[in-house]
Amino acid sequence: MDILVILIPASLFLGAVGLLAFFWAVRSKQFDDPEGDRHRILSSDWDDEPRP
């Protein structure tokens, strides 16, 4: 059962990383325009250079 000492903190840590990633995504407004983003990912407009 000693393995729990590693496994439980590890799983909590990974979960927390996911949670923080979600926080970041919400705060950086990535859910503001799901409809547009769905199309944007396929557009080739700024493939050669980043958007100014």
């Binding site: 909590l12 979960g15 996911g18 949670l19 979600f22 919400v26």
Partner: peptide
């Protein structure tokens, strides 16, 4: 709305871990 979503996310995270 964002506030509620954050609380929901935290609750979901904890729920899954505690359920395990």
């Amino acid at each position: 709305g964002r506030d509620l979503l954050m609380r929901l996310a935290v609750a979901g995270f904890s729920l899954m871990n505690v359920m395990l």
